[in-house]
Design a binder for these strands. Sequence first.
DNA 1: AACTAGCTCAACCGCCGGTTC
DNA 2: GGAACCGGCGGTTGAGCTAGT
Length: 245
Amino acid sequence: MENKRGVRKGAWTYEEDKLLKACINKYGEGKWHLVSQRAGLNRCRKSCRLRWLNYLSPEINRESFSEDEVDMILRLHKLLGNRWTLIAGRLPGRTANDVKNYWHTHLRRKMVPEKLEEKEEKEKPKETMKTHEVIKPQPRTLSSHSHWLNEKNNIMVKPIGTVSTKEVTAAKDRDDKETMVTNQIGRDCVDAMWWDSLLNLGEQECGEKEGSCSLFQENVILELPKVDDFFWDSKLCDIGSLWDL
DNA sequence: AACTAGCTCAACCGCCGGTTC
DNA sequence: GGAACCGGCGGTTGAGCTAGT
């Protein structure tokens, strides 16, 4: 099967696989736009990349998912949603496509009854509104030894909400290192707080004293960080904590 | 044996963010 | 600044397989 441009589509043949493997072994991964040319394949860059990453790569584990892996997928999906590459990243030998397929064929159905229960719960007539205690965190300061801080400066961290993008841009323009550094450290610190708080949720009773696990400070809006920027950083991620989620 | 429905998973598609020019 | 290109991602599709009737 070929498309309008004469590029082959559809299932890969044994011969094509052999050519692709030989090419990757010779030149390494990457430069996918060159792969079809180098390998003598009439396939588009995406097709080559996908075939390698999802099927031909020697790192791929093709055995069925173990109980531990399934449990990990469920927990990570709860945490990350449909971010299959991130989930697959914690499962050695598993590709995002594998995880996604497994989720859709096996696990989604498991989750649906739970969702229905949630829905039914929501549709129940509401009891009288109770006031909820808003948990306010204690400001956290870092010691001068903290790796979150510049080794030379013991800077009191500003939450990033207090340093606007404009300020940072202006700081960059005038080469104001302190503001720039403060902003970055603020981000790093908030990253740490966010993750720390998330992991602690399972251990701490949220009803305990103020400040135990919230992400918000009074009058200051903290921007939640992007998970993938720091999530897998070994400094932050004690994977064992996931079991407490 | 023949047909059908459901399942699995490889592959495609469209979109996005980053980089280069 | 923006167009072109690239790598990468998540959603979706459909061919092939299997189990049930």
